[in-house]
């Protein structure tokens, strides 16, 4: 048995290597539900917007199923690199509820993996949706109640959601252990 290889920072000089043309758009392979957008900005602990953070989005399809082939109609994976003003944007569809242990369910959500220049490992969080019933989600309920709102994107009637990410300090986004 061998422990995983050590993580190392992706550095600041990577965007030409990783970025597919439209990887922020999870509907690029076809429309399999009403389109929504999630936009926001990523801030550091001093409130400065930060560029060149890599965000990776992973979600189930509208029925709560995760894609398990490369030719699935809805792949569920996207990437976005924060712009010089710290902004990011994903276009996708609303995921369905996902099974948990027993008869319980996780509220519709996406997982978000974050890599940053200088940071040695990925940091993981989740995105929930304000217009869903999040009260019984067994994972969201692991987050202290006062901080839960930091994981919940707020949308308008056109499906445009917003959520900012605070990497550290006051108003810090809740992050999960890997």
């Amino acid at each position: 048995m061998t422990r995983p290889s050590a993580g190392q920072t992706l550095g600041p000089f990577y965007n030409y290597a990783l970025m597919g043309a439209n990887e922020f758009d999870l509907t690029r392979g076809g429309q399999h539900g009403p389109a929504i957008t999630i936009t926001g900005k990523l801030f550091d602990g001093e409130g400065a917007a930060r560029r060149d953070f890599l965000l990776e989005w992973w979600q189930a399809d509208a029925s709560g199923q995760y894609a398990n082939t490369a030719d699935a109609p809805f792949r569920g994976f996207g990437r976005c690199i924060t712009k010089p003003d710290g902004s990011f944007s994903f276009k996708t569809i609303k995921p369905g509820a996902v099974p948990f242990e027993g008869n319980s369910w996780q509220a519709p959500h996406a997982s978000l993996g974050i890599f940053g220049p200088g940071l040695m490992r990925r940091i993981v969080t989740r995105v929930y949706f304000a217009d869903e019933d999040n009260t019984a989600c067994p994972v969201l309920n692991l987050v202290p109640e006062a901080r839960r709102g930091k994981l919940i994107a707020r949308g308008d009637s056109a499906g445009a959601y917003t959520l900012d990410i605070r990497m550290s300090g006051e108003g810090e986004t809740p992050f999960f252990a890997e």
Binding site: D44, Y66, G116, L119, S168, T173
Partner: peptide, 19 residues
Amino acid sequence: MRTNVTAPAEALIELPRTA
């Protein structure tokens, strides 16, 4: 790269392995 202000200050929340 000023990782002192980009690494979380709060403890990470333990997450069960789900689907």
